[in-house]
């Protein structure tokens, strides 16, 4: 057992709040603190993600009811989420109905870039100066309320650029997709393991830059598979179009599977 885990200052009886609140004031196991008051250790045992996960479950049910496939796109800032999205939307135009939720700490720049596609885009700003560095499920839940899910086949959530926190929050998506651009270095999957561990698909982006860089693509793949042996890895370039057919096919298949699953129910 971890050394930290055996540290306990005042064992004593553990109590759950709520059952009998008044009992917390008076019970046999109390100690007298420095100030002379009674000391009591209350067993709370509360998962800090509970509130988020309840919202995520509600979102998941809503998406299932409407047979909408939701992909959560995550990456560090600047690895090409919005550019990939533009290239993806251009290919899917007229083929399926896409809606996008854009998450940023500030600005509507990304939503503005997608305006030419004429699709529903909801911009979430988590707010500057201490604004959240990720999208949590309650924000997604209220963003979804402004969408008509009957008119949507594919919902893409572009998360706040950050390789750490977005991985922590279930937003009710079907799949987490992580982007890693070739300029970020081969070691990122090992340095930000939770993100790559949670993702079903990893897109290595900007591969058009490979001839100009000392980057080992095989090592990027190997490092992704170290933290997640089951992850699919695709290489793409939104600039040249390389690999986009495979990525778009992945989306088509996912949307189709979700629809078939919904029909079967």
């Amino acid at each position: 057992m971890d050394e930290d885990m055996s540290r306990t200052e005042s064992p004593g009886p553990l109590r759950r709040p709520g059952a009998a609140p008044s009992a917390l004031r008076w019970h046999r196991g109390h100690d007298h603190g420095v100030a002379g008051g009674r000391r009591d250790e209350v067993d709370v045992h509360r998962h800090l993600q509970d509130a988020n996960d309840r919202h995520a479950d509600r979102i998941r049910r809503l998406l299932a009811e409407h047979a909408v496939f939701a992909a959560n796109l995550m990456s560090s800032p600047g690895s090409g989420k919005t550019t990939l999205l533009e290239a993806t939307l251009a290919r899917l135009e007229g083929e399926m109905r896409v809606a996008v939720i854009e998450g940023d700490i500030e600005t509507t720049a990304d939503a503005d870039r997608l305006a030419p596609f004429g699709i529903p885009v909801v911009q979430i700003n988590t707010g500057p100066f201490g604004g959240d560095c990720h999208l949590a499920a309650p924000l997604i839940a209220s963003a979804i309320e402004s969408l008509d899910l009957h008119q949507v086949d594919l919902l893409v959530v572009e998360n706040v650029g950050n390789l750490v926190c977005p991985a922590e929050f279930d937003i009710g998506e079907d799949r987490k997709v992580v982007l890693l651009s070739v300029t970020e270095g081969e070691d990122k999957p090992l340095k930000y393991p939770l993100m790559f561990h949670e993702a079903s698909l990893a897109l290595v982006t900007k591969v058009d830059l490979l001839p100009h860089l000392d980057v080992d693509l095989a090592l990027i793949r190997a490092n992704i598979h170290k933290v997640n042996p089951e992850a699919e890895v695709l290489t793409v370039s939104a600039k040249t179009g390389e690999g986009l057919d495979t990525w778009v096919e992945w989306l088509r298949h996912a949307v189709q599977t979700k629809r078939t699953g919904a029909d079967a129910h």
């Binding site: 917390l24 067993d43 709370v44 993600q49 922590e168």
Partner: peptide, 10 residues
């Protein structure tokens, strides 16, 4: 990610 216990003085 768990809030285990709170030591309370009353």
């Amino acid at each position: 990610l768990l809030l285990r216990t709170i030591e309370i003085e009353d």
